[in-house]
């Protein structure tokens, strides 16, 4: 796709750069830009009111002591919310769990499994490929709460995972109680791997067969070939995919909330759940927003990196 996008923009260019007999005056050009840009307006208004607006509010609320109860007036409190956060055990716990959740499910789980699936599919028989693809994508298409409910049933003490472990004479346990963060991470892998698989299928499809065959003729084994030839060729896709996986995983709420409510205790309470609890259960909108702002900034940083990876295409 990289190549086709580049060719497309190359095709599009002659138009703008087309014959320009006499240079129009500045005023005419400004007017022309405005008229031509008019169709962007509805999108712009919607984005300004409902996306930029809330982000602006986010920055503002984060420095106030706004509460849901509305009993007292909202005051500007400077950096208090942030100071409070970094001193709070619950916040640090949430940061740590978010890190574990993201690394386990996005970086290791979805990304690696997605790549493995895409790579294996190139060598598998057609039927197996079709069935696996369908199942993995089905898990992705299902609504979030349904997926959460299915995985909840799977990991429950009396659920299917323990049934299998029993059958294999392996020790079973109450996964949602002993290792809740692992259970929700696996759930996220189950739900999100399709995305990586699709990205990598597209990327691998563009690796020219001749290059792989040449490596084969030179006596490279499959692993060597993958490591030295294929992976370097698709490194941009790897970067993009890692970023997108991370960004999606950072904002996972419904999956964890449905499966564990962040519990038991706070042992699967990632940042979005912590933010929710503080803002709505404890009515600390200001403090919750400060947590949200930090999440937004981290997301923004990742998004900026992702953009740099795509930069040549804008």
């Amino acid at each position: 796709m990289t190549t086709s996008v580049t060719t497309m923009s190359r095709q599009a260019q002659p138009k703008g750069a087309g014959p320009r007999p006499s240079r129009p005056s500045r005023a005419t050009r400004t007017r022309r830009t405005l008229v031509r840009g008019l169709p962007v307006l509805p999108a712009l208004v919607l984005l300004a009111l409902f996306l930029a607006g809330p982000i602006g509010y986010c920055v503002y609320y984060a420095f106030t002591d706004m509460r849901l109860s509305g009993a007292s007036a909202t005051n500007f409190v400077g950096l208090d919310n942030f100071r409070h956060a970094f001193a709070a055990e619950g916040f640090l716990n949430a940061v740590w769990l978010t890190l574990v959740f993201t690394v386990l499910s996005a970086v290791v789980g979805q990304n690696t499994l997605g790549l493995a699936l895409a790579a294996l599919m190139r060598h598998a028989s057609k039927a197996v490929r079709a069935v696996t693809g369908t199942l993995v994508i089905a898990a992705w298409v299902l609504p979030e709460v349904v997926a959460a409910y299915l995985l909840y049933a799977f990991f429950r003490k009396e659920g299917e995972l323990n049934a299998i472990l029993d059958a294999l004479r392996l020790p079973s346990q109450n996964w949602l109680y002993t290792l809740p963060i692992l259970a929700v991470s696996m759930a996220n892998v189950w739900r999100g791997t399709a995305f990586s698989m699709l990205i990598y299928s597209a990327a691998l499809g563009e690796v020219p067969r001749e290059i792989e065959e040449a490596a084969e003729v030179d006596g490279a084994g499959r692993w060597q070939q993958l490591w030295h030839v294929t992976l370097p060729l698709i490194r941009r896709s790897i970067g993009t995919n890692l970023m997108l996986n991370t960004l999606q995983t950072l904002s996972v709420f419904g999956l964890i909330y449905t499966m564990t409510r962040g519990g038991p205790g706070d042992r699967s309470q990632t940042l979005p759940l912590y933010m929710y609890e503080q803002a709505f259960k404890n009515s600390l909108i200001g403090y919750g927003t400060a947590v949200a702002l930090m999440l937004l900034v981290v997301g923004g940083l990742f998004s900026a990196v992702y953009m740099r990876l795509l930069r040549t295409e804008v």
């Binding site: 809330p54 509010y57 609320y61 904002s251 979005p272 949200a292 937004l296 953009m307």
Partner: peptide, 28 residues
């Protein structure tokens, strides 16, 4: 247009923002 590139960059940037994070201020 000169405005196109900044606009597209903003759009691309916004596709990555975790929407979950703005939900508290959206509620407010």
């Amino acid at each position: 247009s000169r405005l196109k590139r900044p606009f597209l960059i903003t759009i691309l940037f916004a596709t990555g923002l975790p929407i979950t994070a703005v939900m508290v201020p959206v509620y407010g």
